[in-house]
């Protein structure tokens, strides 16, 4: 399974589209959003850094599912079924791949924050933000994998992009939730992306993640995890 993880991580990092849109885009958007306009405060630079790192991680996590759908369509998953590798190892290997490939985007945006935008945090805070965002991205990997097993390659691409943009915007990864109208703000607090960013923000504010944050995120993880298992079980015998 470790071999599979290495193979898949390598394949992902060689994907130009992944590097540009999964890593470059969040960094670019972060720098744009925090350097255009005149009332940009240090607080927004930090909050947006976490939001964009989360956005990058979200895109990378979902991308794992796009890869699954692609491998399904070219018959590679079927080919794996006739090697001694167990089907379960394939899906677990993919989930682990998702956990690895979210790191570059997180690290790149945090670097941009520290180096370019002068965000100042204690070392332990930097590490904690990175680790929390890394762990918190896992539900989205499961969502991507669920889509990948369930849908065709083309549909998966479209659905993943829709999930990515929709959840990023509504979750407040791009713009502060404070700017939202009241109803959208209350909706936002139930989205997994909002709580995902909340995990990182709490670390920058030297606070422990709130109970609500962990609970909402845990619930979404359960939902996405069940979806992934269901999709996988349904299609594993037919890939």
């Amino acid at each position: 399974m470790f071999d599979y993880l290495v193979l898949e991580v390598r394949r992902t990092l060689r994907d130009t589209g992944f590097v540009i849109f999964g890593i470059g885009m969040p960094v670019l958007m972060y720098l744009l959003f925090t350097n255009i306009g005149d009332d940009v405060g240090g607080r927004w630079r930090t909050a947006s850094m976490v939001g964009m790192a989360a956005y990058g991680a979200l895109g990378s996590a979902l991308n794992t599912g796009t890869g699954v759908a692609e491998d399904k369509s070219i018959g590679w998953l079927r080919q794996l079924r006739i090697t001694p590798m167990r089907p379960r190892s394939v899906v677990i290997g993919r989930a682990l791949t998702g956990s690895v490939v979210v790191l570059p985007a997180i690290v790149a945006v945090l670097l941009a924050g520290g180096v370019v935008n002068g965000v100042r945090l204690a070392v332990w805070q930097w590490v904690l933000v990175a680790v929390l965002l890394w762990l918190g991205a896992f539900p989205f990997t499961l969502l991507g994998i669920g889509n990948g097993y369930r849908l065709t390659a083309q549909t998966t691409g479209v659905v993943n992009v829709a999930c990515n943009l929709g959840m990023s915007i509504v979750g407040g990864l791009w713009f502060p939730v404070d700017l939202f109208p009241g109803w959208l703000r209350s909706l936002s607090s139930y989205t997994p992306t909002n709580r995902f960013a909340e995990l990182g923000v709490s670390a920058t504010e030297k606070a422990a993640p709130g109970f609500g944050t962990v609970a909402v995120l845990g619930l979404w993880m359960l939902v996405f995890g069940s979806y992934a298992v269901f999709s996988y079980r349904r299609s594993a015998r037919t890939v």
């Binding site: 193979l7 390598r10 079924r81 001694p84």
Partner: peptide, 28 residues
């Protein structure tokens, strides 16, 4: 299959993307 007694070339397979031939064969 799990005991490694079987190898197969399926009909509908298309090339795996973004790997070299050596990486692919070594992995298998």
């Amino acid at each position: 299959v799990q005991a490694g007694l079987v190898g197969a070339m399926l009909q509908e397979g298309r090339p795996v993307r973004r790997v070299t031939v050596r990486e692919l064969v070594t992995f298998v």
